[in-house]
Design a protein around this nucleic acid. Sequence first.
DNA 1: TAGATTGTTAATCGATTAACAATC
DNA 2: TAGATTGTTAATCGATTAACAATC
Lengths: 220, 220
Amino acid sequence: MPHDPLRPLPLPSVRRLPMYLRYLKQLEAEGRQVVSCTHIAEHLNLGSIQVRKDLALTDIVGRPKVGYETRALIEAIESFLGWNNTHEAFLVGVGSLGSALLGYGGFQDFGLSIIAAFDAAADKVGTIVHGKEILPMDMFVDLVRRMHMNIGILAVPAPVAQGVADLMASSGMLAIWNFTPVKLTVPAPVVVEDVRMAASFAVLAKRLGDVLKQRSLAPL
Amino acid sequence: MPHDPLRPLPLPSVRRLPMYLRYLKQLEAEGRQVVSCTHIAEHLNLGSIQVRKDLALTDIVGRPKVGYETRALIEAIESFLGWNNTHEAFLVGVGSLGSALLGYGGFQDFGLSIIAAFDAAADKVGTIVHGKEILPMDMFVDLVRRMHMNIGILAVPAPVAQGVADLMASSGMLAIWNFTPVKLTVPAPVVVEDVRMAASFAVLAKRLGDVLKQRSLAPL
DNA sequence: TAGATTGTTAATCGATTAACAATC
DNA sequence: TAGATTGTTAATCGATTAACAATC
């Protein structure tokens, strides 16, 4: 079932692909040559049909009774996600969150490389954070243009988030990975993906509340 | 429509509530007394019916033609999410991500307070990070029990994630906010919420790819 | 009153799950 | 061959959107 390119991508499936990828890499490291949907599904607590359908997005074909070749599957997912060639990005905002992102090693798992970081604060500019020099905002637009940067990572304080997003868009960036809680407005082709930590915590707090409620109703 | 408590919560709605909350607080700060769904929806690029239905989860009632009282709505959402009383949490793992979480100011918006941080590395224990002393793992289980901590924030390296999660569960914690890419297995009442940055980046990369493809097909 | 907005029921849409033939 | 697994079509489920009466 080669996914009909006219229909929008099923985003829940896209979001699950990195989970498969991570597990497959682990299996490969353990020397496993082939793997079935059933096996993946079991390990990740998912339905095997769902896994099969998600994998089908990448146009991989498996062998009945056997499964998929681990290596081929890894390559199919990476290629589908575009994680086989490196994505270079500029980071703006080197506060506590921004500097964590600068130092986070896990990004290389998905081919993301932060090649420069910018901050508006004069006392941060010129310092080295996790091995990278912090550049002044003055240089931002010019460097984006000269280096044809597509991806901006936004980790500035909320009040200036929209302003920096405008700057990113006007300098020619096409994608903004938004770590602020601000709903950004951007011009036509630019895409924004929000990392909404508050949304995640809302679910946790709500479910914890349910557990506590049940506990108080039915004590030991 | 007071949400039927027997049916599971619509999680997409729960995830949107913090967005509303943030915007409502902004409106309140600007002195706005009442607000309509239409207005909220417009600002957040959502459908007004969706907003109305989400808000109905909190049992708030509005006035036709007028809308909702800003303050009452804020309180209804906070109460629904349990964000009116403070959630205290222990953080484990003070690497680059963990120390960012320690220093991140935004958590107070949702009543989350990290009251202690732990690390296994001897050279980190005893140091002060963002004003908080790093404690040794030896003290973890005992402190969780004595302080009746419910929430653990997991920001350790992937290889030890499951082990620390086991420790959290066995010491009596009921909720784990998981910043690692590992799929955790936990015993019965414990809830886990994953912050899957890779999933978010997968969507961004995929959509950026689409934009670039369109560009190359229809150049200037 | 007229018009806008809420609350609720019905229709649509998309994602998940089930069923089953094809295949190694 | 027998049994397990894939690929695909159909059924179910849940979330979103539409329709509309009630109300201020």
